[in-house]
Design a protein around this nucleic acid. Structure first.
Length: 245
DNA sequence: AAGGAGCCCAACCGCCAGCTC
DNA sequence: CGAGCTGGCGGTTGGGCTCCT
């Protein structure tokens, strides 16, 4: 039977104090990241290694970009989520200075709602209903989500669209922006690959941390849902990005 | 002004896959 | 070759903050 990683009695839990933060920063700046399991003891912290790693990666790392997400970052997250689903570490790998936790939180608290307000199912990025400027577009059938979370998160389809006047303007702008961005992206891809299919190269060019790359490559080799160049085809080869057509 | 509701986000938990012995 | 260890990931939780009534 496997032992839990944090079974040590007396370990602190919950929010980190500034003293703890400083100890961790000092230790890592002196010795590097190394073996997380041994770091707490070596740094004089009453935390499990996992907790130290998380604190460092999500909060203390010097290259972390804090503050609001820019419009370009937002768009990129939406596009990548459409392609990758809830693979936050991969999405975060495309956003320099952003962590998977941050991207995940931002998605859950902001972007999900934004898409819902736009009449788009955040799980499969398909339109749930017709917006004024997209009326020529027939409502797409909602297909099974391609994410690994299954149907338990599929609340979007049942949510009403209660846009205020101000919201609909904003939404319209955002939709336009996304469409334009995506068209250029697809055009670019088609030009380089000779194909019109959505096939963005998802190899991480500059991983946020050394561990990122290793893991990503491993996942790419072993992942259950596809290979490196085959981006999220899902159970069928239906396009999943109706919004961006 | 007070209290309840809702939101945000840091942190935890459990699982998985790769590595090592 | 298999068991155990470790790092990493995604989902979930809960405390604190803000907004609303």
């Amino acid at each position: 039977m496997r032992k839990p990683c944090c079974d040590k009695r007396g370990n602190n839990k919950g929010a980190w104090s500034t003293e703890e933060d400083q100890k961790l920063i000092d230790y890592i700046q002196t010795h590097g990241e190394g073996c997380w399991r041994s770091i707490p003891e070596a740094a004089g912290l009453h935390r499990c290694g996992k907790s130290c790693r998380l604190r460092w990666i999500n909060y203390l790392r010097p290259d972390i970009k804090r503050g609001n997400f820019g419009q370009d970052e937002e768009d990129l997250i939406i596009k990548l989520h459409a392609l990758l689903g809830n693979r936050w570490s991969l999405i975060a790998g495309r956003l320099p200075g952003r962590t998977d936790n941050e991207v995940k939180n931002y998605w859950n608290s902001h972007l999900k709602k934004k898409l819902i307000n736009m009449g788009i199912d955040p799980n499969n990025h398909r339109l749930n209903q017709i917006l004024p400027r997209l009326q020529a577009e027939p409502a797409a059938p909602v297909i099974a989500t391609s994410t690994t979370t299954g149907s338990k998160n599929n609340v979007a389809a049942s949510k009403p669209n209660n846009l205020s006047d101000g919201d609909s303007d904003r939404v319209s702008d955002t939709a336009t922006c996304l469409e334009d961005d995506y068209e250029s992206l697809v055009t670019q891809q088609a030009a380089t690959s000779g194909s019109s299919s959505i096939d963005i190269d998802l190899n991480i060019a500059a991983p946020a941390s050394p561990g990122h790359r290793t893991t990503f490559e491993n996942k790419q080799q072993n992942c259950k849902w596809g290979k490196t160049s085959q981006v999220e085809r899902g159970p069928s080869s239906l396009p999943t990005l109706l919004l961006f057509r």
